[in-house]
Every structure is written in structure tokens, then in C-alpha cells.
Amino acid sequence: MKENIWSRMLNLDRRWIFLFIGVVCIVPFFFPFGLPVLPTAHVISIFDYVENLGPENAIFVSFDFDPGTDPENMPMAVAVTRHAFSRHIPVFFTANAPLAQGMLESGLAYITNPALEGYFHVVSWQEWAQYRDQGITERDQLEAAWEADGNVLPANSSGWVFEGRDFAKLGYLPYFSLVILGMTSSIASQYPEDMNGNPLVEMPMLQEHKSLRDVDLAATFSGTAACTWWITYGREKIGLPVAFGVTAVSATDYTIFIQSGQLIGQMGGLRGAAEYEVLLQNAGYFDKPDRAFIGMDVQNAAHLLILFFIVLGNIAYFAGGFHKKGALLKGRR
């Protein structure tokens, strides 16, 4: 076949395309547009649901993803956790795979990192033992007693989080679908101790919420179909309310569960996380949104470039008459 401008264009070394996308994903970080992200119904419904919970309720935040989908799933899990911590809603943290447990630790390390603005200051299980011994376990009383003893919240912190009162790290167990089922009867029988080896049965949040039946929401953040376990084994067994935070690739597969009422709402990809960050900011929890929102600027530019590639590729294909002539040159790079 004779070479012309169109064939040369279509046979372009793909490394040039790699370079284009790389540049387009770097430049907007230096010149942010800061375009607004408008929250959609699927995300607002999760936010509103959590907004109506308080210290007397409890939720599960399940880190069901591995490092591969960390950039998509982590901002969602972080946003929901920060929301729950801000409202003093007790959070049980689980993970459906060993590497997911690593992501759980990494997410909590980010939320509680004193070097970051708006972090949550952790008071470990051991640190507030004396207050437990005095019978002080109610959330507001505990915080008042803790601060009365001279503990001052750092200026850049959003609040205290007491291990065992505000959160419990349950972590990973094999055959997690059956673990969800087991927790519909008893959480402590599945997890005798937390990830740090602390006895769960002694924790106030466990004493108030013994099984999934006493839990008000399970939010799963997942890069695989494992998120549906929470629907099959939690929702269908005991009516547990479930919310999804899934990768964009699988987001369109699970909207059927929203329509069927099996799911409260869903965050899809980076956009979903950015929407939740905007909702947190609008509600006055934090001064500014987090990393997902910043990433949306780059997403704009990249989508425009991909659109440009699709249009250009089609123009070259049809203008060059390749739809008639059959295959393009073989052995393209």
C-alpha cells in the first residue's frame, strides 16, 4: 500500500502518543483551572445517609482493594472515614484481602498523619485506659475528661479519635464473604482481637454494636466484584444498608443495584471521590477538598486529549480510505 499522510499518521510510533498523554497529565498540575465539580445523586445519597448518623450509630468502612487501584479507591475511603470521624460515628475497618489490609493501614496513616492539615489525632486503646477504668466511655464525656487532664488538640487537627470508641481496626480474614455472614451473628466471634492485638470484646463500640445487625452502614471500597459480597451476604441476609466506592471501570456494572434499592449510593472512580470531597467542604467539615478534586483538573485535560485522538484517528481512517482498502500496514510499533 502506498504511503500517504494518513497512513503515516496512523502508523505513528505509539511512544509519541505515550509522550502526549504523559505531558497532558503533568502540565495541569502547574496551571490548575479549578473547575467546579458538581455532586451527583448517587454520591449525595451516601453523604446524606452518613450525615444523618451520629455517635450512637456505627458503620463499616471496608478497604477491599489492593495497591493497583489505590489512586481511585483510597480518596473515597479517606473521604468517608473523615466524614465519619468528624461526626464521631464509630467506624469498624475491615479488609477482604491481605494486601487490602496494607491499604487500610496506609489510609489510616494518611488520615491521622500529624504533618497534614486537618488530620485526626489518634488516642490509642492503651492511652485512655484510665478513663475506661473510671467508667468513662461515652464519647463526649470521654473527650471532655481527656481534655480536662491537660491534653490539647493541635491547631492543625480536626479532632480526637479514640481507638475502641471511635474506631476499631478489624483487618483481613480469609473467605471474607463468609466472614461477612459470620458477623451477622457476632463481630467478636469473627475477630477475637483487632489488628494491634487489643481485645475487641472490651471495646465500648463492640459492646454497643455486637453484630452487623447493630450496624447502620457498610461502605465498601473495591476494585473488584468482591464489593457485591456485602450485598449478597450482608444486605440480603439481614438488610444491612450498603454503599459502594468502586473503580470507574466497574462503576456502570453496579448502578443496577441502586435502581433495585439494594445500594444506598455509589462513588465511581476519582470523580466520585472528588464529589464527596466537595460535599465535605460545602458542609463545612474541611476548608478545602483533598487530592481527588485536584486530580479532576488533569482528568479534564486528559479526556479532551483522548477525545481528540478518537476524532483524529477516525478522520485519518476514513479520509485515508482505509475502511475500503482493508488492513493497515503490518508490524506497527
Partner: peptide, 14 residues
């Protein structure tokens, strides 16, 4: 959505 997802992963690393 897949396009969005793949780009998001790259954004995270950048």
C-alpha cells in the same frame, strides 16, 4: 468510564 479510570490511576502516580 474505563477511560476515566485508567487516567485516574496515572494521575495518582503523577
Amino acid at each position: 468510564f474505563t477511560v476515566m479510570g485508567r487516567i485516574s490511576l496515572l494521575i495518582g502516580r503523577i
